[in-house]
Design a binder for these strands. Sequence first.
DNA 1: ACACCCTATGTGATTTTATAACGTCAGCAG
DNA 2: CTGCTGACGTTATAAAATCACATAGGGTGT
Lengths: 175, 175
Amino acid sequence: MIYNNMTSETPSTPADNADLIGFAKHDHASCVETGLATAQARCEAEGLRLTPVRRKVLEMLLQEHRALGAYAILDRLRDEGFGSQPPVAYRALDFLVENGFAHKIERLNAFVACAHPGGSHSPAFMICRKCDAVAEAYSAPAKGALGAAARAVGFEIERTVVEAEGICPDCIEKR
Amino acid sequence: MIYNNMTSETPSTPADNADLIGFAKHDHASCVETGLATAQARCEAEGLRLTPVRRKVLEMLLQEHRALGAYAILDRLRDEGFGSQPPVAYRALDFLVENGFAHKIERLNAFVACAHPGGSHSPAFMICRKCDAVAEAYSAPAKGALGAAARAVGFEIERTVVEAEGICPDCIEKR
DNA sequence: ACACCCTATGTGATTTTATAACGTCAGCAG
DNA sequence: CTGCTGACGTTATAAAATCACATAGGGTGT
């Protein structure tokens, strides 16, 4: 079960504009729109404030569907007339991450839009080291070897980082 | 199956000097010695050069048995009369990580000594957010939900980052 | 209307983490 | 000896993240 994607801005050929989800094609324009709509709805339901900066950052992440560094986001915010200092970007990202609209990819010090907002979840990522595509899958933190080890010693897991680095199907094909 | 530890330098009481491995007590002095000896043996066997800086950094990591930042290491290197600029520490760490003597904890931008050097492995970590103790367990990257997802879409995993953040048994007890 | 508070934003400065670029030196092969 | 290679040292700089403080808008209670 894969839930993510890739973008036309990867190092692959610019002509390669067919967007991919889970390393497979998908309708990208609608996925930005529905992503924003979903977020807006959840914010209204939960009393969260999806302010213009936050909304804009989420939109950027949804458009890219790849990990984007905080400073890349900041550059675009500046171009759009928002504040231009790091805290502007970091605060918006903090909000999005805390509320599950985005995730931080620790391995890259960068951020992606959440591919399946809604219920709380512990995501796992596949990161292509060739084209930077990032796909999001579900992970089962409490299961498997790590969960067993944690239970065995009495470690209480609160959050997991699961990131696989490798080559996406698209880049394998191109070799 | 847990293979790591904790140190007397945690935020716990300084009197609490009993070292822990896998959040359980263990003979710490011997574990530094055997760690160094094992590394030395492997380097000789494989034609790697365990130079003084590299050896010192490994020793520091083994002594701590917690994630240590590159600059913390650099400070100690300086105190020991080695070079005092960042590349000195980063190069030694790169060597140790590339050869499996140490691991980078992405979540903390910091480094730990490998708790079970020897064969290649894909480690998983448990990180206590109270006392910074880090325990290393084996992970099974190709198994579980992520491995299944990767196979399903044709993603080729080369390396995995698996880090669980939470509370270690020792800190749970202290609450 | 007003004072008050809370949250979000904007900005300058700084800290923390990491790399680039270049010179030197020791060991060793030819 | 010459030239190569790998490790180390240093200066400088880049990249990522946070601190500290000022301002502004939206509510609330009076």
